[in-house]
Design a binder for these strands. Structure first.
Lengths: 153, 153
DNA sequence: CTATTTGACTATCCCTGACTATTATAAATT
DNA sequence: AATTTATAATAGTCAGGGATAGTCAAATAG
């Protein structure tokens, strides 16, 4: 018996296909459709529509709130970028990260200014609120999310 | 999904563009136009046309009252960035952050792609390694550091 | 053990309306 | 004519309600 989360995952994926790569849903509505608690939708999204798997998720609360899921555009992504995203791993040091970013510029994946932004966002300087043992992990998350954002639209 | 406040915001912004940076409206008239209570106009203005976001608002009550909204005149992008950097507090929510970033695009301070990077780097999605009570603080740090990086040649 | 499911609690956003504050103008008073 | 008072026409404030989504940890399933 397929678990409910798998069913919801399939439903969303086929919806994304039908809608050319992007859907906007309402959490409660979807939960209602599948007779589950709303937070299960969060579970499905956080386990199956992650950055690593090629999805970009945004949401908003309050009246008219929504959750939007976008699939990255493989065409515009470029093999190198996709390769990087999948090869960055769960952790990355500041130094390694800077080397990556420099390479992106060399390969004309990003502009100089974009490189500045990326370095600024992944610098140890901004990690003061992150526990020491999680900084390389946080850095990898930020780096990958930034790269992923460039592959959309 | 179409939040009325967003629609009113867009309406005002396009009006401001058309009128070269300044508009004068009447609260009741505008409220009437959008079938909402007058105080919603205050809500829109106080959440979207603040000083920090580059707008200057004046008003007058009584007969012939009005609300005037002016876009701040920016001499240089650098000045504006410095202004923003110093006005972003120690904490910032994801949504407020997105509004800031949207404004940078409106003001031609940054490109669309740069906006994507900044949003990606300050999204709640990347804060999983940051303790909950420190996420807004971490976000503010990242945002300011990115902005700072743009002011340097 | 790991993955899933659940639900109680929290956070955020928008919209509303009752009440308040201010201003201009007309009317009344001096 | 000047001043004061009353009235109408605005705009501002704030707390509350409804509509969403997020988080986390306990319970359950596989």
């Amino acid at each position: 018996m397929a678990r409910l989360s798998d069913i919801i995952e399939e439903f969303l994926k086929s919806l994304i296909n039908k809608e050319q790569g992007a859907v906007e849903i309402q959490r409660n509505e979807l939960a209602n459709m599948f007779n589950c608690v709303p937070s299960q939708i969060n579970y499905v999204i956080s386990t199956r529509f992650t950055t690593d798997k090629g999805y970009y998720v945004e949401s908003r609360r309050g009246g008219g709130g929504y959750i939007s899921i976008k699939r990255i555009n493989i065409e515009s992504a470029g093999d190198y970028l996709m390769h990087i995203i999948s090869s960055v791993g769960d952790k990355i040091s500041q130094h390694t990260c800077e080397i990556f970013i420099k390479n992106f510029v060399d390969y004309d994946i990003i502009e100089e200014r974009e490189a500045k932004l990326m370095k600024a966002a992944t610098s140890d300087k901004v990690m003061t609120d992150v526990p020491l043992d999680k900084r390389d992990s946080a850095r990898a998350t930020i780096l990958k999310n930034m790269l992923m954002s460039l592959t959309i639209d």
